[in-house]
Amino acid sequence: MTIPLLKLTGINKSFGPIDVLRDISLDVNRGEVLCLLGDNGAGKSTLIKILSGVHKATSGVMEMDGKPVSFDSPRDASDHGIATVHQFGGTFQLMSIGRSFFVGAEPTKRWGPLVIFDRKRANEIAVREMRQLGITRIDDGNRLVGGLSGGERQALAIARAVHFGASVLILDEPTAALGVKEAAHVLRIVLQARQKGIAVIFITHNVVHALTVGDHFAVPIRGSKAADFRKGEKSREEITDLMAGGEQMAELEAEIESYMTKHEGHPPRVGG
């Protein structure tokens, strides 16, 4: 039995009186794509924030390579090899591709008595890394990030994470804002990252996209893990039903519960 690269055991998170995550346990392995399939409000984004060091879990254990870890900051998480790519990829719209690729880790060279940012090398590396992910339209690292398409920005952000040696890549709805062709390209890039042995956590509510690249699936509903299964164990219809139906069932139960607490334990009358 191999030790999972990232292992969550009994993670709980509450903001004041509100429980956002309840008893989440997950294994993420090297060279595997874990898909988190959930509707809005299922707790996906809170889970990402815990993994990427933005929030701390209220309780529970997070382990990397079998050793317990705790992240104080996003920087701390990225030092542990966890890279998060958000929906719109690169956020520095008005920076050049080469500059934004190396933000915080600029290559430098000596120029007489001065140490200067090696823009030429930064541009070359950025363009090369993007080309490796199949983005061949980009040939000039001086161009601005804001001029890239949504898929290209995702590719830039993923290329950056891969270049800086991320071992866990968290992709937060990378395909949600993309057209069909661009989404397909991003999915290919996800598989490419998987082949490099990176553990990918792919957050989406698109079942088709998830089934295309996923090895392992988890469905959070209302902060709890409602299902956890491997590729081939469930059909697309079953997963869709699980996501939608499970959500609605939970909603209905919550409604009945609140009705009962308000009305001294009486269930709601039908047609009353």
Partner: peptide, 26 residues
């Protein structure tokens, strides 16, 4: 020199572009 040649120029542009991402990038 600061803005165009040194790495601090990159920091300044990044902080102005998105200070949260810039901080996360170290």
């Amino acid at each position: 020199y600061i803005l165009n040649l040194s790495r601090y120029g990159n920091w300044i542009l990044a902080v102005g572009g998105d200070s949260v991402s810039a901080r996360n990038a170290g």
